[in-house]
Design a protein around this nucleic acid. Structure first.
Length: 298
DNA sequence: AAGCGGCCCTGAAGGC
DNA sequence: TGCCTTCAGGGCCGCT
């Protein structure tokens, strides 16, 4: 008999790559090798209709492994089937929680080994689908997705190629999952700040040094956030959920009106107006106008 | 065809 | 206190 960890839930406010990675690691630690003995779907759809035979197909299968692609989690099952999971905006996973069904807990399954998995998603922007394991990469959710930002395939050269000729603001381009996988509003803001790039810069006008800084900044912020989320998951065993601790490391996101953490360090900080918020394509963008000046017009 | 706005959904937060 | 409006955003859809 295996040791069952204390009850906990994995909560993330806005699941981007690091949060999805954290959730996937929690699922792997709790569920890998287990056999599903019951599955329940309490509504027919999330963002899209659930597979009609979802619970029937899950039932009896062994959970063999997990992997992440962008913001999607693949749970590979015995018999050559994979379940895709997207947490949308408000997705939360409970593992080994109580038998009580939580509000907005749309899907639940339990394992022979005594684990209970629950997917809670109030806004229902999340998704679940099934796909044969050998066809994972051609599933419509991931087929057109760009490179994993932490993989060797994501380089200044490949990013420059994607951005060439594009007049959209770099902020919008980085949110496009076809350009690079897994980034959302928070980490795009953070990466642009670290790379000292104005979010409205036309993507195709970025210089190669700027693109190199951007690739480095994206890798750094994601790596740090995964480390923080991981430690949060490892240490965190309360039932009611809490943000991973990386939220405290945000330098610009959600900090409108506050001093810029970079400008505050150096001379001339009185010339910095602090972090400001603008709207781009209906999304909020946070940046420092002094660290990230508007690009020179040419 | 690139680019952009609208839409889905619920809960939190702010205004009066 | 309570009701109302606004905002949050991932990703798809449709219009230009």
């Amino acid at each position: 008999m295996s040791v069952i960890a204390p009850t906990y839930s994995v909560f993330v406010a806005m699941p981007e790559l690091p949060e999805v990675e954290t959730v996937m690691r929690g699922m792997r630690a709790s569920l890998e090798g287990h056999r599903i003995t019951s599955a329940v779907a309490r509504r027919p759809d999330l963002r899209w209709p659930l597979p009609k035979n979802l619970t029937t197909i899950l039932n009896g299968r062994r959970i063999e492994s997990f992997r992440r692609r962008g913001k999607y989690i693949f749970m590979r099952l015995s018999g050559g089937m994979s379940m895709l999971l997207h947490l949308g905006m408000s997705g939360r996973v409970t593992l080994n929680a109580s038998d009580d069904v939580t509000l907005h807990e749309h899907v639940t399954f339990t394992t022979e080994e005594g684990r209970r998995f629950g997917l809670i998603d109030p806004r229902r922007f999340g998704a679940i689908d099934l796909v044969p394991t050998n066809e994972e990469e051609s599933h419509r959710f991931v087929a057109t997705m760009g490179p994993e930002p932490l993989s060797p395939a994501f380089t200044a050269d490949t990013l420059a190629e994607s951005l060439a000729g594009r007049r959209s603001p770099i902020k919008a381009m980085l949110l496009d999952q076809r350009v690079v996988a897994g980034l959302g509003n928070i980490y795009v803001c953070e990466a642009l700040f670290r790379a000292r790039i104005h979010p409205a810069t036309p993507a195709g006008s970025l210089t190669k040094p700027a693109i190199r800084r951007l690739v480095h900044a994206i890798r750094a912020v994601l790596t740090e956030a995964i480390a923080a989320g991981g430690s949060s998951l490892r240490d965190y065993v309360q039932p009611d959920g809490e943000l991973g601790y990386f939220q405290h490391a945000w330098r610009v996101y959600g900090r409108a009106g506050q001093p810029c953490p970079e400008c505050s360090k150096g001379k001339g900080k009185e010339a910095c107006p602090g972090i400001i918020k603008i709207m781009q394509s209906g999304r909020s963008t946070f940046f420092c106008p002094r660290q990230q000046p508007e690009p020179a017009q040419s």
